[in-house]
């Protein structure tokens, strides 16, 4: 039996929201989110360093969704198709928490989890070397940076990548990525 994705994501990402979105992830949506968040960061008088890190991490998070989301499972919601995802941005004590949620094929979860675990078990210097190795040795794909996105997020934030996989049905899982950007690095 599948669970309620929306309430699950809301509970997981809850806090002091500055932006919450559920729906189609296309280029126009990415532009609108980036503009909105940039304006809010400027009006909140955040330091340029934190502002840039939040913006950079948001770009990678949204483009990860854009390039990599899986098919929406049959029967999830009416009129939902294509690239579908959740985004929540919350103000926290010393920075911002960016959470994304998306469906992923169940047979792809293991590889993704292995990649995240590898990043989370690496020191900052190892992440920097991993970033440079992927940059220099992997071919760019039409889908984006060839696996650089998560490495870049971990490098820029200096924090571990939080994540959860929940089985939705036999073929589909729901993946949440939970990123803290606090400019302390």
């Amino acid at each position: 039996m599948s669970f309620n994705v929306e309430s699950y994501f809301s509970d997981l990402s809850g806090g002091n929201p500055i932006l919450y979105y559920k729906g189609s992830i296309d280029s126009d949506l990415i532009n609108r989110v980036l503009d909105t968040v940039e304006e809010k960061l400027i009006s909140s008088n955040e330091s340029p360093r934190l502002r840039k890190r939040v913006y950079n991490v948001l770009v990678e998070s949204l483009q990860n969704l854009y390039h990599h989301v899986g098919e929406v499972p049959v029967g999830f919601e009416e009129n939902t198709s294509g690239k579908f995802g959740f985004l929540a941005i919350n103000k926290v004590a010393d920075g911002y928490r960016i959470c994304t949620g998306n469906f992923i094929r169940a047979d792809e979860t293991e590889e993704l989890e292995n990649r995240i675990t590898r990043i989370n078990n690496s020191t900052h210097d190892e992440i920097t070397e991993l970033y440079k190795f992927i940059l220099n040795h992997q071919r760019i794909s039409i889908k984006g940076g060839g696996g650089l996105g998560l490495v870049d997020i971990a490098r820029k934030t200096g924090n571990k990548l939080g994540y959860v996989f929940r089985s939705y049905d036999a073929d589909t899982s729901f993946f949440c990525l939970d990123i803290l950007v606090n400019g302390t690095r």
Binding site: K52, Y55, N56, V59, E60, Q63, L135, N136, I140, G144, G145, G146, L148, G149, D152
Partner: peptide, 12 residues
């Protein structure tokens, strides 16, 4: 000012 990871490969 900003570049994303897919641009980073192209810049390389």
């Amino acid at each position: 000012e900003y570049f994303n990871t897919s641009s980073s490969k192209c810049i390389l």
